[in-house]
């Protein structure tokens, strides 16, 4: 069995600025979540793993990566735990550890950030094309892409800001 890491909860509390020890596991968060059914560990289970110090298990879970941060769970939570902030903290720890359980979702975020770094704004067409290359999924959504292009929902050229250097400087740490 995995070794318990008693410092895990403090680490999460510090990064997230919320207090996971308040959770009494009523699972209201999971009940309200639109995507809990595709998570291996659901929101209330993630909080429980944090409470009992099963760090490796929490960091290897897909839940924090599937979470889109819609805040429905934190609205439901009777103890006002900022659950998406806990998910943010766990993702940050998994990235620091270099073991990312949901590579394609991570790659998608990286493509968005890469676009912001290059232009200061997001360029959706390029993001989609690069994401497809990285995930080696060339054919799904081709028809959708064509429909979006023909309806001018995807722009061919990016919109580039003048202060792109300012924005690039912000990325020094992330790379």
């Amino acid at each position: 069995m995995e070794k318990i890491d008693p410092t895990f909860i403090r680490e999460v509390a510090q990064i997230s600025g919320t207090i996971p020890s308040r959770c009494y596991n009523c699972s209201a968060c999971t009940s309200g979540c639109q995507f809990a059914h595709i998570m291996d560990k659901k929101p209330h289970e993630i909080i429980r793993l944090v409470q009992i110090g099963l760090k490796n298990e929490a960091l290897a879970a897909s839940g924090p990566w599937i979470c889109v941060g819609c805040n429905t769970c934190s609205m439901e939570c009777p103890n006002a735990i900022d659950i998406p902030a806990v998910m943010d903290a766990i993702r940050a720890m998994a990235i620091a550890k270099g073991e990312i359980p949901e590579k394609d979702i991570y790659n998608f975020h990286k493509e968005i950030l890469g676009s912001i770094k290059r232009y200061g704004r997001t360029h959706k067409l390029e993001i989609m094309m690069r994401f497809k290359l990285v995930s080696r999924d060339f054919f799904s959504d081709m028809d959708l892409g064509v429909r979006m292009l023909s309806r001018r929902k995807l722009h061919i050229l990016p919109s580039r800001i003048k202060g792109v250097r300012d924005v690039r400087n912000l990325f020094k740490k992330v790379g």
């Binding site: 993702r91 940050a92 950030l113 924005v167």
Partner: peptide, 18 residues
Amino acid sequence: PDWNCCGSSSAHSIDQEL
């Protein structure tokens, strides 16, 4: 003038400071 993207769902997902 010259506004930049707010970071959307992706910035806080990967780097809260960013």
